[in-house]
Simulated assay, not measured.
Amino acid sequence: MKWYLKALKQYADFKGRARRKEYWMFTLFNIIFGGIAMALDNVTGLAKMGIGPIYGLYALAMLIPSIAVIVRRMHDIGKKGSMLFVALIPAIGSLWLLILLVKDGEPTENDYGINPKLATA
Rank of each mutant, 00 (worst) to 15 (best):
G93I: 02
L46Y: 15
A7V: 13
K9S: 06
N30T: 10
G93W: 00
L118V: 08
T44V: 04
A68H: 02
I32G: 10
V69K: 04
P65Q: 02
G50C: 05
M83Y: 12
K6I: 03
A91R: 12
G50S: 04
I64P: 02
L84E: 02
G105Y: 07
D76T: 03
F29C: 09
I89L: 12
A37I: 13
R73C: 00
Y112H: 12
F26C: 06
K2L: 15
N30K: 10
L95K: 08
M38H: 15
G34T: 13
I36S: 09
T120D: 14
E109P: 10
L95R: 11
Y4H: 07
Y4K: 07
F33T: 06
I32H: 13
G45W: 13
Y4S: 07
A59K: 06
V86G: 01
A37G: 08
I36P: 07
A119T: 10
K103Q: 12
I51S: 03
D104P: 04
G93E: 01
I64C: 05
I89N: 05
I36E: 05
T120W: 11
A7P: 00
M83L: 05
A121Y: 11
N115F: 10
H75G: 07
D41W: 03
A39F: 12
P107K: 07
G81P: 06
I99Y: 15
I54Y: 06
R72Y: 02
L100S: 08
T27C: 10
I67W: 00
I32C: 09
K48M: 07
L97V: 11
Y23M: 02
G78S: 06
